[in-house]
């Protein structure tokens, strides 16, 4: 009798959890209580790392320091170029009437646990709802896209990695813009491109970047490099295997990306409001001017050709708030 009651209860819970959103808050609160288990389980690893850190020799540290300095120099050289390129890109985009953002805000997070189930690729990170993490948020590491947030708890979040067999991401070949969908295989070193025509121009060594078409991942981040392309005449499509660029099973520090999730219309509206406020605060004595400035901004919001020009101004007021997260 008790077995029956408990089984029915479990099944009911499963169905409700799978189909409805009712249990999400319960789950997130329970997660708050239980996620210290992950932290506790990692304690020995942490302690070991700390002790090895303590006892690394001076020469090792100096060598590492030298290497890092050389790296910084290299990066700075690249950055100098990048600043000019970014400016150019913004100007060109303005010319093209495209309002895509060039830079995204990020938040650094640390990995605190790995899913114990070896058949799923999920990790736990130390940032949660309280840090502004949201469902579906893209996660990067230093080398490329890692995955997306699938469960948010108050102080932690669960991330589904690209290579999980239930995950797919829209990509394009960096060389020629060919679009494809990269699906996880359950192997941490492999992605597969689905439905790529046998004649498609894709070859070994091609870099795949996110295309942003799924509206979930920002476009232009490296996802994987093509490892092999197999043309099998018995198969309707080419078999394309790729290796993720991110160190999915090694990275300890990750970046959470806050992209601009507003629609173009919202963006135009916001920029119009921002322009209105700027016009309001700057020329304080010229009160009659306010009446003329507002309709102008409103026009800008209504006519699509005007909107993008105003759009690059939109992220500016938002930037301090996002920057504060870092």
């Amino acid at each position: 009798m008790r077995l029956l009651a408990l089984v029915v209860l479990s099944v009911a819970l499963m169905v409700v959890d799978a189909r409805l959103e009712v249990l999400k808050p319960v789950r997130s609160q329970l997660g708050l209580v239980l996620s210290p288990f992950y932290w506790l389980a990692e304690v020995p690893v942490r302690l070991w790392e700390r002790t090895t850190e303590q006892f690394t020799s001076r020469s090792t540290l100096m060598a590492e320091n030298e290497k890092l300095q050389a790296e910084v120099l290299l990066m700075q050289r690249r950055l100098q170029k990048l600043a000019a390129l970014t400016e150019q890109n913004v100007r060109l985009r303005e010319l093209l009437n495209s309002s895509a953002l060039v830079d995204d805000e990020v938040l650094a997070a640390e990995l605190i646990g790995v899913d114990p189930n070896p058949y799923t690729h999920r990790i736990l990170i130390d940032k949660g709802e309280k840090d502004g993490v949201f469902l579906g948020q893209p996660v990067l590491d230093a080398r490329g896209l890692m995955g997306q947030v699938v469960e948010v708890m108050p102080y932690t979040a669960r991330v589904l990695l690209l290579t999980d067999s239930t995950h797919s991401i829209p990509v394009q070949v960096n060389r020629n813009g060919l679009r494809a969908v990269a699906s996880g295989t359950g192997n941490p070193e492999r992605l597969e491109l689905r439905h790529v025509a046998d004649t498609a121009d894709i070859k070994e060594g091609d870099l795949l970047v996110s295309s942003g078409l799924g509206q979930r991942f920002p476009s232009g981040y490296p996802v994987a490099t093509v490892k092999e392309v197999i043309h099998d005449s018995g198969q309707p499509f080419a078999i394309v295997r790729a290796v993720p660029t991110a160190a999915l099973n090694r990275s300890r520090y990750l970046l959470l990306v806050f992209t601009d999730r507003r629609t173009p219309e919202q963006r135009a509206n916001d920029s119009a409001i921002a322009a209105e406020e700027a016009g309001e605060s700057a020329p304080a004595p010229l009160k009659p001017n306010r009446g003329t400035a507002a309709p102008d901004a409103a026009n800008g919001a209504n006519t699509p050709t005007e909107a993008p020009a105003a759009a690059p101004a939109a992220p500016a007021p938002a930037a301090p708030a996002e920057g504060a997260r870092q």
Binding site: S10, M14, V16
Partner: peptide, 10 residues
């Protein structure tokens, strides 16, 4: 584990 609520319970 982040599985469906009730799965391991069952």
């Amino acid at each position: 584990y982040g599985t469906l609520l009730g799965q391991n319970a069952l």
